[in-house]
């Protein structure tokens, strides 16, 4: 809070909101801009917990980092529809089918908000989607794992959405305004999904022996990939320092992972399921769980494109996009004709 820029930040905030209404402040703005380096001012704003908005000056690297992160996030929502959509036609009751449909629909909505947030940074949706389809852009590796049984729909909600929420709650306070606002909406829906997933697991865990086995098997397969969702450990994380300074991120990968583990281990106990980690144990001094070694070789392998479903996911996205081309063209052509008719 001792940055020299802070004093001006409050004026700038007013000016930014009502640029024409404060001619005197507009002068101050000019002076301030001259006196302060733009980057210092930007950092002062971030430090003062003011949101950065699309029209504000921002370092190019901040913009790039955000575009990368938000687009990856958007792609994850969209690709995530595939493993979950995989069970819509096989959901075991009409109620479950309706809940799953609604959930996958929410994910599509999240994708849309996030592509819009990306557009505020100058990345067109067309180009962003193209980067996904060409394999250039990444998405959360977790969605390269298959949903093999109905219990996986429970596990995805409980663990994958549960892990995602840790990140997303933090991102509700991220420094970039449109991203933070998109996250507030998304978080509400995501925590609902997490409860629904937990409920699926809970019904299975209390069900027949076969159902309980299905739930345990699913936890066994999803546990470690879920922990990997938080990314490399802090010591090996390349993007973290700037992201923390710019308050894009506000907690480290390992802090978030710890919170997730502490919470989820207790939930597994309530379910009567066993976390597949022999080294897992409560540490009375730190008041946290200690856990075993994450197989980072597996993580890197999936990120590199060799996960169980990487190819299928990209094929499915490309197929949808290519086969939808004539539909999008028809809509554009018709809109064009209508506009012409109106003008005539």
């Amino acid at each position: 809070m001792n940055s020299p820029g802070l004093f001006f930040v409050h004026y700038l905030m007013i000016i930014n909101e009502r640029p024409t209404a404060y001619p005197i402040f507009a002068n101050i703005k000019t002076v301030a801009m001259e006196d302060l380096k733009l980057e210092e001012l930007f950092q002062a704003k971030v430090d003062a917990e003011l949101k950065i908005e699309p029209k504000d000056w921002m370092p190019e690297k901040y913009r790039k980092t955000l575009i990368r992160q938000i687009s990856q996030h958007a792609h994850s929502e969209v690709v995530g529809m595939l493993p979950e959509g995989n069970w819509i036609t096989r959901a075991p009751s009409l109620r479950r089918k309706a809940i799953l449909l609604a959930k996958v629909q929410d994910e599509a909505g999240h994708g849309l908000y996030l592509y819009s947030a990306c557009e505020t940074l100058g990345a067109t949706r067309e180009k962003t989607v193209e980067d996904l389809n060409s394999g250039k852009a990444k998405y959360s590796s977790i969605f390269n794992y298959p949903t093999l049984t109905w219990a996986d729909i429970g596990a995805v909600g409980w663990l994958v959405d549960g892990a995602a929420i840790m990140n997303q709650v933090m991102l509700c306070r991220t420094s970039y305004g449109p991203y933070a606002r998109a996250m507030v909406r998304i978080c509400k829906e995501e925590s609902f999904h997490q409860r629904q997933g937990y409920e699926i697991m809970s019904v299975l865990a209390k069900g027949t022996p076969e159902q309980k086995e299905m739930a345990q098997d699913s936890l066994n397969r999803w546990w470690w990939p879920s922990l990997m969702m938080f990314g490399p450990s802090d010591a090996n994380s390349t993007n973290s320092a700037d992201s923390m300074k710019w308050k894009i991120k506000r907690q480290s990968n390992d802090e978030l992972r710890q919170t997730f583990i502490d919470r989820t281990v207790q939930q597994a106990e309530i379910l009567g399921l066993t976390i597949p980690d022999a080294k897992l144990k409560w540490n009375e001094d730190t008041k946290h769980y200690e856990w075993g070694d994450i197989d980072w070789a597996e993580f890197n392998n999936v990120v590199a494109g060799n996960g169980p479903c990487n190819k299928e996911r990209l094929v499915a996205r490309n197929k949808a996009h290519d086969e939808g081309a004539w539909v999008r063209e028809a809509a554009m052509a018709y809109a064009g004709k209508q506009a012409k008719r109106k003008a005539a």
Partner: peptide, 10 residues
């Protein structure tokens, strides 16, 4: 429901 995730646009 079979379309879910495979539509021509989001």
């Amino acid at each position: 429901g079979e379309w879910c995730g495979h539509g021509p646009q989001l």
